[in-house]
Design a protein around this nucleic acid. Sequence first.
RNA 1: CGGGAUGUAGCGUAGCCCGGUUAUCGCGCCUGGUUUGGGACCAGGAGGUCGCAAGUUCGAAUCUUGCCAUCCCGACCA
Length: 491
Amino acid sequence: MGKAITGREEDYSQWYNDLVIKGSLADYSAVRGCMVIKPYGFTLWENMRNQLDKMFKETGHVNAYFPLFIPKSLFEAEEKNAEGFAKECAIVTHYRLKSDPSKSGKLMVDPEAKLEEELIVRPTSEAIIWSTYKNWIQSYRDLPLLINQWANVVRWEMRTRLFLRTAEFLWQEGHTAHATREEALEETEKMLGVYADFVEQYMAVPVIKGIKTPNERFAGADETYCIEAMMQDGKALQAGTSHFLGQNFAKAFDVQFSNKENKLEYVWATSWGVSTRLIGALIMAHSDDQGLVLPPRIAPLQVVIVPIYKGEEGKKIVDEKARWIVNELKGKGISVKYDDDDTARPGWKFAEYELKGVPVRIALGQRDLEQNVAEVARRDTKEKQTVSLDNLVNEVEKLLEDIQQNMFNRALLFRKEHICQADTWEEFVQALDKGNFVMAHWDGTSETEEKIKETAKATIRCIPLNNPQESGKCILTGNLSKERVLFARAY
RNA sequence: CGGGAUGUAGCGUAGCCCGGUUAUCGCGCCUGGUUUGGGACCAGGAGGUCGCAAGUUCGAAUCUUGCCAUCCCGACCA
């Protein structure tokens, strides 16, 4: 009872915060804008990370690690990128503290320990990485260079939200170098595909693949590809980005290679990333008023077994069978917890594991054992069924897969119901107000995009890939347009 | 960074306006017992720098100032 969460309808923001805090994913910290990821939340991240890492390696990438600090002179080398991040950089200016002579027991910055050159705490690592790649790349034989790093980055945000926007967050950033423009473009799209596959197949969140408009493009990129997901309030969340960097960084850091004709050329680059923000997407795409709803493939815990018994003798009987089930499930590679904690009663445990989003709950009682069955409940629909113990393991295995599929289908259906076209300004604003993604014509200018953002509070999320060409008139200006683009209010 | 709100035990809170012995209550926690099929019950118990720091005062949870953190709205944001 002490853990009741705020309803989605009542206060969506508070609902989200309640899920994160009461679902034990994360906690506030003593540092402004920074959060603590708790073991349950971190296990979720580890599961996501492990799968992504596997997919990166399957596509030929290797991991490395680059410094947290970037000398200011390196950081500013690629001007557009530097400008884009300038307003949210944390900067190290000193390297030593000393005792404060005016306050005993307190410390102060030692003014004599000022760094000759300030260090930027990385908001992204292009600068440090490309300054290094310069030394690693001489010949076309050194290409492609396909490196990823798992790291933390810092972006000094004005307003923070757990997982969605924090000053420090965890992510991965891939940085690749290629001999040709075509190959780099191919890589950019390939990694976007990896992200889309991961988010859809493992997180059960459908995404729209697309290209950002110049306004929304990554600073320093020639083209930014993205995947956009719909949250339950109809707002969009950018779930991942993949950038075609052209030769911008190669030129800024003078990274050239000799081609087969022994001529010097600048390399072509990509970078791509997803972050712990994905956890926010996961929460807002699936969860309900009872708590988290986590997809089986990445859930920290897939199955929980709750025993129900009377007396010591009863416990022994149930224990024995439960442990057998645990072993059987583990044998199938399913993560399972037998919660035989005697201090909490079954009803309490049911509510607790629903809050935590455990996909499958098995209630095992003496009455069940007499009939050789167990009660199996699924978190996504809250349906319960009675399953023979002889089939239990197979049924659970099938059920986990079914939950995974159902969650994706449900999210996809929700998106279909909340995506529409608009041809007049009035329709457009109404659709947005109702929490829709809106496909509408846009005249292709930044000015119009800005005005729409100001008046309708909606941004162009992307120009979908393989977007059907269709002539029409801009929703705001009435100017000619050749395709619809995706508008939404966004996180 | 601007506007608004909040901060009292792990959580939620009363008290604050109008300063005055041992700071209220519920949940949770600990001990013992009875229980156990949807957030159990009885009895006993522990737990507090009242966000932090200065100040006013004989005396501060209460008044003043500064700072820190969180939430909401805005601005900002790959």
